[in-house]
């Protein structure tokens, strides 16, 4: 107990020393967080194309390549390598996402959800790949588009299956609610279905990936600042191991988050589409 307290105290001292260390005008020494746009906004490589755009395009290309290679293989043999991977993903979508949320009727949505899952996962994954370390979904562009697409798709599905008025009647006046409560329920349902759903879908993906990215940036910067510390306090350099260990741990955690966010985005899409196809009775 004492030793941990001591360690925490020392760590706090170290940080305070770093933060308050007087920096030169040209190159500030110590720990300083850069302006957020310098770690999020990337300069154009070619006009109109920056790092995030390249990652998004590469995700689509890698996904296509994986499934192309898998589709070219002989299907009758026991699946190996890329074919096995592709089939595992397809089965995951069918069993764990569609069967759990939409049932057997939703099987027609497999290609859409499969593509969505693979694309988002491959956009998330560069966040933890060394030397790339930028998830394309940590910028609002891709999540916003995906959420808008989902919004259009589930509303269109609802209108197609229940008719325009039937769909909005089911959305705005959910059956089984006392008549007097509609005064309260209808505005809530309107906002939650038409505004909050796409908004929260986009913000969830975006904010999770951005938060993970910022965490990695912070611990990487802290490690760098400690290791390059040019103060008289010589023990600062070895202490840089601590944020580095946390950086490694958080990178492992981000692998999980990348998968989980792709999964949650796809599951929520399936739930919204399933809800629009089969209204509650």
């Amino acid at each position: 107990m004492f030793s941990t307290q001591f360690a925490v105290q020392k760590f706090a001292q170290v940080v305070s020393v770093l933060v308050s260390s007087e920096g030169g005008e040209a190159k500030p020494r110590g720990f300083s967080f850069p302006p957020i746009n310098t770690i999020l906004r990337w300069k154009d490589v070619v006009p109109g194309i920056n790092k995030v755009v390249i990652i998004a395009i590469l995700s689509a290309v890698i996904g296509t390549a994986l499934f192309l290679v898998a589709a070219m293989k002989d299907a009758r043999k026991a699946p190996k390598g890329s074919r096995n991977l592709a089939e595992i993903i397809v089965e995951f979508i069918e069993k764990n996402i569609i069967m759990e949320t939409m049932g057997k009727d939703g099987m027609g949505w497999t290609p859409f959800l499969l593509t969505m899952f693979v694309f988002i996962y491959l956009c998330n994954l560069p966040g933890i790949i060394p030397f790339i370390q930028m998830p394309a979904t940590a910028r609002m562009g891709v999540p916003a588009f995906m959420a808008l697409l989902v919004w259009v798709v589930f509303n269109a599905t609802g209108i197609k299956h229940q008719g325009f008025f039937g769909y909005f009647k089911n959305v705005l006046f959910p059956p089984g609610v006392p008549k007097a409560l509609y005064i309260l329920v209808t505005p809530i349902e309107l906002i939650s279905t038409l505004v909050v759903r796409p908004f929260s879908l986009a913000v969830r993906l975006f904010a999770n990936m951005l938060a993970g990215h910022l965490l990695l940036v912070i611990f990487a910067l802290l490690t760098q600042a400690l290791i390059q510390a040019q103060t008289q306090k010589f023990f600062l350099v070895p202490i840089g191991v601590l944020p580095f260990a946390l950086l490694i741990f958080l990178t492992g955690f981000e692998i999980l988050v990348a998968f989980l966010q792709a999964y949650i985005f796809t599951v929520l899409t399936a739930v919204y589409i399933g809800g629009a196809t089969h209204p509650e009775h």
Binding site: N96, I97, E100, T101, S200, V203, R204, A207, N208, A211, L260, Y263, I264, V267, L268, V271
Partner: peptide, 17 residues
Amino acid sequence: RTTMFLGVAFTEALALI
């Protein structure tokens, strides 16, 4: 597990906002 992740997603949205 599926329902749990759905619930987590909805709850987490508040923190993310």
